[in-house]
């Protein structure tokens, strides 16, 4: 923890602000949500790490995708992700968004979530413990420091690839493209 290092704060205050005030979007995408209430309440207290849940995507900069993503949930996930202001970070929670997990042969779940939106980090396991969230958060701090948590930049750059993949699953999307495409 380098909270007391004033010099570092002064070097890049913006980065420090992003690091220590992660506003997690309150969106129960899957069964991983069961470990979020213990994480944010008294016993484990995620606020020690600056993580606090917020109500709407417009206020959030951390998207914890908690558990498997069904085809029907993918649409609100994309919408919520696109509504979040930059810089934004996404963390996949649990085995299922990584490669399908135990639903690898299900006809209605998305197998690799990073084909549709960029993901900055993964927490493996089913169910990951609350400590795993904190490990992920501290790891995300390192990534932000090094400028490696750049999923939102990738999304802007490769938007037409992502949009193409999204439309393959969901059909024609009803909202206009977020970014104007460079080469489509």
């Amino acid at each position: 923890m380098d909270r007391n290092k004033l010099g570092k704060w002064l070097q890049s205050p913006g980065k420090m602000g992003q690091k220590y005030s992660l506003h997690a979007l309150y969106f129960c995408t899957g069964c991983g949500i069961i470990e979020i209430p213990p994480t944010i309440t008294a016993r484990w207290d995620a606020e020690r790490f600056g993580v606090i849940p917020v109500a709407t995507p417009r206020q959030a900069n951390l998207f914890l995708i908690t558990g498997y993503v069904s085809v029907k949930t993918l649409r609100p996930i994309i919408r919520s992700y696109e509504q979040m202001p930059e810089p934004k970070f996404t963390v996949g929670f649990g085995s299922c968004p990584i490669n399908g997990g135990m639903y690898w042969d299900s006809y209605n779940t998305i197998k690799h979530l990073d084909k549709y939106i960029p993901i900055d980090g993964w927490i493996a396991g089913c169910m990951p413990r609350p400590e795993a969230v904190f490990v992920a958060v501290t790891h995300l701090w390192t990534l932000i420091d090094k400028g490696m948590a750049d999923g939102y930049k990738k999304y802007r750059e490769d938007y037409h690839y992502y949009r193409e993949n999204q439309e393959k699953i969901l059909g024609k999307l009803e909202w206009p493209p977020l970014f104007s495409s460079k080469k489509m």
Partner: peptide, 13 residues
């Protein structure tokens, strides 16, 4: 339907 995984179908396999 946001959480439909087709459990009963998966159980058959």
């Amino acid at each position: 339907g946001f959480l439909h995984r087709g459990f009963e179908k998966l159980m058959e396999q």
